[in-house]
């Protein structure tokens, strides 16, 4: 009995100390880690949608454009856990595109996808993968343009599912779960866009007024 208690106390004590230490460290590093993900994952995904629309971007303009995307983002509160970040892409000669992130359930956890909607036609302007923990070499291949470009130009009523499930998307061979996760994320984004179209457009317009006094 005494031995059992000793085992229990030792293991529980170590686990408790570990939890406290990690909790403390998380407090210190979480903000910086989130900033890094925004800067090095989310913004490049938005930029990739912009480039996917046939907009050329010279290497020396890339950093400046990324800054512009980063500074131009808006927050909109849709009653979810945290406010949604909206990114706006504007290019001469084409209608503005609103981009925001949605998540699907991948093989190794949440899979983040930036989804862009053309504000004039309401068609999908493109998608870009942000964060994922899929199997390297298999699931990570959903990042490839060959897969993501299939979403470009799809309408609001398209079936955002892989062909195996009766949809219109060709899944990546050997990565059905990851392909499904991307389709699921896009589908969620579409539903969010349809449900909150007014609020999203209003948030973007209000921001623009503020930006040009």
């Amino acid at each position: 009995m005494k031995k059992t208690l000793h085992m229990f106390v030792a293991l529980a004590g170590i686990a408790l100390a570990s939890g406290l230490a990690l909790g403390g460290l998380h407090q210190v590093t979480a903000q910086r880690a989130a900033d890094n993900i925004l800067r090095f994952k989310k913004v490049p995904a938005v930029v990739s949608i912009y480039q996917g629309r046939g907009q050329a971007l010279a290497a020396d303009q890339l950093a400046a454009f990324e800054d512009q995307v980063l500074q131009g983002r808006r927050q909109v509160d849709l009653g979810e856990e945290s406010p949604l970040s909206l990114f706006l892409i504007e290019a001469a000669g084409s209608s503005p595109v609103v981009v925001f992130e949605a998540f699907g359930q991948g093989f190794g956890g949440d899979l983040g996808v930036m989804v862009g909607f053309d504000l004039a036609s309401e068609k999908l302007a493109g998608i870009g993968i942000t964060t994922m923990s899929e199997t390297p070499g298999l699931g990570t291949r959903v990042r490839e343009t060959r897969f993501t470009k299939q979403f470009v130009g799809l309408g609001q009523d398209a079936a955002f599912q892989v062909k195996k499930d009766g949809g219109v998307i060709d899944g990546v061979t050997g990565a059905t779960v990851s392909s499904r996760a991307v389709a699921q994320a896009v589908d969620r984004a579409r539903k969010l866009f349809q449900a909150h179209r007014q609020a999203i457009v209003a948030a973007i317009n209000s921001g623009q007024e503020k930006a040009s006094p």
Partner: peptide, 14 residues
Amino acid sequence: ATFVVCVEMITKAY
């Protein structure tokens, strides 16, 4: 595992 998660958090942040 505790130290590994420390390393993971630190590399992700810095």
